[in-house]
Amino acid sequence: MSTDSKPPKHDSGKIGFDRRTALKGGAAMLGMAALAKAIAPITEWTSDMSVDEFLQKHYKELKPGELQTVLARLEREAVEDHGVDVSINDYRPKEGVKFGYALNLSICIGCRKCAEACHIENNHDRETNQSYIRVFEMEKGGIDFEKGDANYNHPVPQKDKFYMPVQCQQCENPPCVHVCPVEATWKEQDGIVVVDYNWCIGCRYCEAACPYHARRFNWKKPEIPSQDINPDQGYLSNRVRPAGVMEKCTFCLHRTRKGKLPACLEACPTGARVFGNLLDPESEIRWVLENKRVFVLKEELGTKPQFFYFFDE
């Protein structure tokens, strides 16, 4: 709308340079002042944001030099925000590697050690006890999540129950990636679905699309005591996320792309978890796929998970 407050007289003389116009002008000024006051919190919020951060390009468009600048800036911000020296690296997928994960439901006891390890490894918000893994206590006799409970808090394992940890299934055909309007999430060559936390607009369409409740939104900035921050961080994985963006399990790519086992596997006291390279015929994961009767969650949806479940008996 035009901001000119002096309409000419041509309009049937209804509007003129009279007291009414002055009043209207005053009201407009008042309105603008009220608006400025109303949206003041945004000014405060933007003062925290650097121009570089605002204009940062998509991960895939960053040239190596630019990426180094971004990583350096993020490391600097970690010092400013948390007072800790962290190392944020860009870990790339390796040729000939495609990750797969299998979980033995016969020996999982539901101790949530995996969820806890994830919580610590991936710099999750402490107050909400966030984790990429949700463990369900299920009734024996079927895989019916309607009879499952993720909030149990009693000694495990219970006799008539079995336990089903669920995390990102790193689908071969990931609905979350398809729906993202800005390509802020994508599947990498080694099968890991990642999020560029500095590109995501926070529309949460992926969270609606995921059939496995694998995605999490940062309803606020994660709060972690400085001394508890895991300083070994990946740009696409466990660096402390900004508020208002999506995050998800990355099979600990900052570990696994260096050849290490994911944190949830190391924490498992029963050895229910098997991780490895699906393209290596000698790998443990391949042995499981070839010798156990494995299944995937919600196979009928055609998402082709790379996370497998199996029973011993």
């Binding site: 969820a115 806890e116 993720a150 909030n151 149990y152």
Partner: peptide, 21 residues
């Protein structure tokens, strides 16, 4: 036989308490 143990604490998601906490 693997002994029973107390699990690590359950998730404390926003408003999950509506159900069980």
């Amino acid at each position: 036989a693997f002994p029973q143990m107390y699990p690590a604490p359950p998730p404390r998601d926003r408003h999950i308490s509506i159900r069980s906490q």
